[in-house]
Design a protein around this nucleic acid. Structure first.
Lengths: 303, 303
DNA sequence: TGCATGCTATGCAAAGTTGCATGGCACGCG
DNA sequence: CGCGTGCCATGCAACTTTGCATAGCATGCA
C-alpha cells in the first residue's frame, strides 16, 4: 500500500467509492450499492484519505459524517462522475449493431404481462446479440445516473438530458374476478370490498382516485400491486387499475358501477437518455416498447 | 476478469491508461509514462475494449493506431481527466498547513546553484512537514497536466489556468574561467573559443545570441548546460550565460569584449497553477522562490 | 438494565492483478 | 540481405486486493 500523502488521485476508481459513501451515508450501504464488501469500502476510503492527506469521513458506529473537506470535494467528484458517464454515452454512440445489454426500468406488472410475453420474444429473435436487463421495482431508477437505459413508467419523467414520449392513456376501471362479479354487481361504491396499494404512505394515482370516490382506509392494503391483484383474482375484493389489464388477465373483468364516475386515466411514458436514443441497441428496444405499448391504448386501438 | 460487454466503464482507472496510450502512441510508452509494465497496459486496454464492446487500438508490431471509436472517445476521456485534476486541486485547497509534497520543475543549474543551497535549507527548517520534488531536465513539464506544481523557467509560460510572474532579468555575459581569463583577453569575438549548448538542434536564447554575434558552429557543442560550464571552468572555452552565474561559481568571471555588444538578457519566471497559488504548501514554496530569485537580478540588487 | 441491531475495523485465506521473462514480428540500418 | 532494435502478446511466480468471518462498539427498545 503506502501511497504517499501528496494530494494526488492515484486511483481514479476511488472517486466512485467516495460518491457511493456520500450518497448512501454509510460504508455498508456504499458496499451494497457497489456490489462489493463493506471491508473493501472501508479500506479504499482510508487509502483515499491518506492519498489526499485529509480525513473525509468521521466514523461513528451508527453513522458516517462527512468532514468539511469531503463537502468541498463533492462537486468536483460529481463532475468526475458526469464526465465518466458522458464517456460511456460516447462509447455507446460508436456502436453500429444492436448488441450488448439494455437495462429497462419498469413495473412488475408491465414486465410480466406486456414486455416479457409480447415484446421480448420478437426482440430476441430479431437481434441475437442483444441482451436485456429487466429492472422491476417501485424505486425509481435514475436514468441520468445510468442506473437504467430505458424507463417505462406511469409518470412524466423529469426532463434534463432525457427524451421520451407518452405511449398510451389507460383508462382506469374497477376490476373484479369474473367468478365473483355477480356477487357485488349493483352495490354502491361505499359497499364494495375495496383493496388498495399502499407503499410508505405515499400518494399514488390510485390512492387519489379512491379518495375521490370517498373510499377511506381499505380493509385490505397491499404493499405491492401484484399481491393486490392476486387478492382480487382470489375474489377477496375489487381494485382500481387500468382496464387494459383485463386483456392480460382474462379472469378479471371491469365492474360497472351504478354511479359510473369517471375514474380517470393513467399515462404511460417511455423514456431514455437523449444520448442513447440513436444508439442501435437502445433504439430497437425503445421502438419496440413504444409500438407494443401503444396497442394498450384503447382510443388508439379503436382507430 | 470476464467483464461483460455492456458499454459500462466499470474501471474508471482504465481511462488513465487509454489516455496514456493515445498520448504516447504505444503501449510501451504508456507503460513508461504510467510507471508500470507494458504487459499491464496491454491487458488493461484489452479489458477496456471488451468492456466498451469496441476496439480502441489496432496493434502493429511497430506502432499502435487508434480506431475511429477511440477517436470518438478522446474528448470525453480528456474531460474525465480534467475533472480528476480539478478534484485534486480542490483537495489541495482544503489543506491548512504547509505539508505534503511540492514538485518544482526547473533547470539543473537553478537547482544546483540557487534552489538547493539557498532556498531549501530555510524552507525545510521552517516547515518540517513539507517535502520537495526537484524535477530538473530540459523537457518542459506540463503544469496544467499536473506533472509539476511550480515551474521556474526562462520563458513566459503559456497562459490558461496558470499564474506567475517574472522574478528577474538576468543580463547575459561571456563567461570564462578566471585562471584562463588573461589568455583570451582582448581577442575579438571571432577569435574566442566559443562553446555552445545544442539540444535536438532547437533554437535557444543563447544560440540566437551567438548567431547575432556572428559565431557559427562552435568547436565544442554540449547537449547539457552543465557540461558546457564544466568545459568553461576547465579552461576549454567561453560561454554565453547569465552574468549572475559568477555569484554561484566564483571560479568564473565575465569577459569584457572589446566590441562590447549588448548580449541581451534572460527573463526568469516562476509559475504555478492558479488553483494552487493559495494552497499553503505551494504558497510557501512559491514565495520563497520569488524572493530568492529576485536577488539574482542585478538591477534590483543595486537598488 | 439488558438485549438486539446495525455499524466499522481487522485477521486470514482465496482470488485477482502485476511484473518479469520469453517469443514472435516488422521495420530500418549497415 | 541479414542483423539489431523496438514493439506487442502471453506464461508464470510474486504480490496485492478482495471477501468472509469475527470482534468491538454505540444506539434504540423493552
Amino acid at each position: 500500500m503506502a501511497r504517499e500523502a501528496m494530494q494526488k488521485l492515484t486511483q481514479w476508481e476511488d472517486v466512485r467509492y467516495f460518491l457511493a459513501v456520500v450518497r448512501q451515508g454509510s460504508f455498508s450501504g456504499a458496499a451494497r450499492a457497489l456490489a462489493t464488501d463493506q471491508s473493501t469500502v472501508s479500506r479504499r476510503i482510508a487509502l483515499l484519505e491518506h492519498a489526499l492527506g485529509q480525513p473525509l469521513f468521521e466514523r461513528g458506529p451508527r453513522t458516517v459524517r462527512r468532514t468539511p473537506q469531503a463537502e468541498a470535494l463533492l462537486d468536483a467528484a460529481q463532475a468526475v462522475e458526469r464526465a465518466v458517464l458522458a464517456m460511456e454515452d460516447a462509447a455507446s454512440r460508436a456502436e453500429a449493431e444492436p448488441r450488448g445489454r439494455v437495462r429497462i426500468a419498469l413495473t412488475e406488472g408491465l414486465a410480466q404481462h406486456v414486455v416479457v410475453p409480447r415484446i421480448l420474444p420478437g426482440l430476441f429473435a430479431a437481434h441475437p446479440e442483444l441482451a436485456i436487463d429487466l429492472r422491476t421495482g417501485d424505486e425509481v431508477l435514475d436514468l441520468a445516473r445510468h442506473e437504467a437505459d430505458v424507463s417505462v413508467r406511469f409518470f412524466r419523467p423529469a426532463r434534463g438530458e432525457l427524451v421520451g414520449q407518452r405511449v398510451a392513456r389507460l383508462p382506469l376501471a374497477v376490476l373484479v374476478a369474473k367468478r365473483a362479479r355477480k356477487r357485488w354487481a349493483g352495490r354502491s361504491i361505499g359497499e364494495l370490498p375495496w383493496t388498495s396499494y399502499v407503499k410508505d404512505d405515499l400518494e399514488t394515482p390510485e390512492s387519489r382516485m379512491l379518495a375521490r370516490l370517498g373510499v377511506g382506509r381499505t380493509r385490505l392494503a397491499c404493499s405491492s400491486v401484484e399481491t393486490q391483484l392476486a387478492a382480487v383474482r382470489a375474489g377477496l375484493g375489487v381494485a382500481v387499475a387500468p382496464r387494459a389489464l383485463t386483456l392480460a388477465l382474462p379472469d378479471l373483468a371491469a365492474l360497472d358501477l351504478p354511479e359510473a364516475p369517471d375514474l380517470g386515466t393513467l399515462e404511460l411514458f417511455v423514456v431514455t437518455r437523449a444520448a442513447l436514443r440513436k444508439v442501435p441497441r437502445v433504439a430497437v428496444v425503445y421502438d419496440a416498447l413504444v409500438e407494443a405499448l401503444r396497442a394498450l391504448d384503447p382510443s388508439r386501438a379503436e382507430v
